[in-house]
């Protein structure tokens, strides 16, 4: 009941990879989310990865670590990471960490 289940939905178009995340991002879920995302990134090697956070109901600072890590991985493979549609709560924590300074954050899908 309280397990932090999550789900990913993946769409690919040419060099663009869209991943919509569902559920809660905390330290518990971030571990497997990270593994799954990295596997997809390294397989598809997109030039642009867009993480759609519109269906994330909860995120704490573990989510910041997760996003920073994917930002670094995308840079390593010569691509960029963008975040789209975070809710107000998620946006607040992104701003607290100043993530908008190096990751593109967009309100639209």
């Amino acid at each position: 009941m309280f397990s932090t289940d999550y789900r990913l939905e993946i769409k690919k178009r040419d060099w663009l990879l869209m991943v919509r995340l569902f559920g809660e991002i905390d330290h518990h879920s971030a571990v497997s989310m990270r593994e799954e995302l990295d596997r997809i990134i390294l397989k598809e090697r997109p030039r642009r990865l867009v993480l759609d956070l519109s269906c994330i109901e909860f995120m704490d600072s573990a989510g910041l670590g997760l996003l920073m890590g994917r930002y670094r991985l995308m840079r390593e493979i010569g691509g960029v990471l963008a975040i789209t549609r975070p809710n107000e709560r998620v946006l607040r924590i992104l701003h607290l960490a100043g993530m908008e300074r190096f990751i593109e954050i967009d309100g639209k899908a």
Partner: peptide
């Protein structure tokens, strides 16, 4: 190494 953001207490 654990991809911590170091933002826990700040939050």
């Amino acid at each position: 190494a654990g991809e911590r953001s170091g933002m826990g207490f700040t939050v």
